[in-house]
Amino acid sequence: MKTPTRRISKIQPETFFPETVRTVALAAPAGPVEPETLSRTVDFLRSMHLNILPAKSVSGKKGASHLSGSAGERAADLNSFIRNPSVDLILCLRGGFGSVHLLEEIDWETLRTRRLPIAGYSDITALHMAMLSKKAGIPLTARMAATLEKDLRNPFTARSLRRVFSLAFTKNKTRCPFRAVARLTPIVSGNETVSAPIVCANLTVLASLCGTLFLPSMKNRILILEDIAEPVRKLDRALTQLQMNGVFRDCAAVIFANFKKCSPAEEIKPLAERLAAENSIPVYSGLAFGHCARSLSFLCGEDAILSGGVLKVRFPECRLSDAGAPGGRRIRPFF
């Protein structure tokens, strides 16, 4: 994606979240978090004058060092946050692997009633896809809590994060104007303007949900894919699995975002070209989203417009003390 021509101003941490967000829960549904990292994250978020509730199961389980705790412990933490009426927002601390273990244990009914935002990406794709499938909560494809302090130092990333958190707590989203956030490279472009909801996913995690009740329909959706540290054969396997399950058949468009430490772009491009040919849909690359320092964030299911390779999303009023108050200033577009 080309660098925006407009200078991006720095965002002050104390104005980052909407004022309606008072209590933030820190969940670890997948991999473990070092105690020092958790302590630093809690301190940083408390500096924003927030009440912070860390998960009990965070630092790992003996015999399963890749997990923050047993499936039961992790599910109990997440459900305690979902059922706590004082919690306004759940931030996932990190990804890794393990979110899929919790899908059959989550209190979907309460989450459906509360419409609670849950933010994260990468392995958190499993939670987000289940949320879409169950029509429960608000899935925010956003940066991890453990890296938030560093991420907010990048104005591009910070502004996109703030847009998403503001949008999540905006009641009448249809009144928010569309603004451009990316100019994409066409692999196979369509002639018509695409207007459809966005769904963001980690490619290999998305493929792992095939054949389950937690994979939502991608019909008339703009599907954004990212991944990290996967060789081309594994990316091919995941795309083929999704293709054979009909996931791409009715997509409005597919965007290949950041594939950090994966095979070279010249090896991934033929996979995208094949996907476009097999499904007769527009396919793009070059979106700054995923495991990269300069990354956009999205609300899964939010409206978007894709026209001429330019991606537009809604920008809410951005005086975070009151998203709809007179005199509130809008977030500036990225171009």
Rank of each mutant, 00 (worst) to 15 (best):
A229Y: 14
R175T: 15
A168C: 10
T15R: 15
G60E: 09
F156S: 03
K135D: 11
C318Y: 14
R249W: 08
S59Q: 09
L271D: 01
S70H: 01
R143E: 14
A323S: 08
F259V: 02
P4V: 01
A142S: 11
I268R: 12
F81Q: 01
K62S: 12
P270W: 10
L223D: 02
F259I: 03
F178I: 08
L235A: 06
R330Y: 14
R332A: 08
R159T: 04
A207N: 03
G72H: 11
N202H: 15
P186F: 07
S133K: 12
G96V: 04
A25P: 04
R294A: 04
P197S: 04
E104V: 03
N154T: 13
L91K: 05
P231G: 07
A288S: 14
A265K: 11
I106G: 04
E230Y: 10
I255E: 01
A145E: 02
T185N: 15
S280F: 06
L38T: 02
C176Q: 03
R329H: 11
L275Y: 02
V58H: 07
A207T: 03
A146W: 01
E105T: 02
E14Q: 14
L161A: 05
R179S: 13
K312H: 13
R112P: 07
A64Q: 09
F97E: 08
A182D: 08
C92G: 10
G98I: 05
L167P: 01
L203A: 10
F156W: 06
L103R: 04
M131E: 04
N154V: 11
R274G: 13
E34Q: 10
A293P: 08
E105C: 08
V58C: 13
N258K: 05
L132G: 08
A257G: 10
G137M: 03
N191V: 13
S208M: 01
A196R: 14
A146E: 07
G137H: 02
L148S: 03
V232F: 13
A158N: 05
T240L: 07
T5H: 14
A325I: 11
V254T: 11
N279T: 10
R22E: 14
F335P: 15
T125C: 10
A277I: 08
K173A: 09
M244N: 14
T23A: 09
L271F: 00
E34C: 15
D123P: 02
V205S: 07
N191Q: 15
A252M: 11
A130H: 06
E273R: 13
D303P: 09
F289V: 01
V42R: 06
A136R: 00
V247G: 13
K56D: 12
A27W: 03
F81P: 01
V164R: 03
S99P: 04
T157F: 00
E278Q: 12
P186K: 07
I198N: 12
M129Y: 12
Y121K: 05
T37M: 02
I124S: 00
K56Y: 13
E273M: 12
I90M: 05
L148G: 00
L213N: 14
I228N: 15
C200Q: 06
T141A: 13
E267R: 11
P29R: 03
G98Q: 02
G120M: 03
E105Y: 11
T5R: 12
A55S: 15
L184F: 03
A75L: 06
A253F: 02
L140M: 10
R6V: 07
P264A: 10
A207W: 01
A277Y: 10
N172Q: 15
F289N: 00
A119N: 01
A293S: 12
A325H: 14
P326H: 11
A136T: 05
T185M: 09
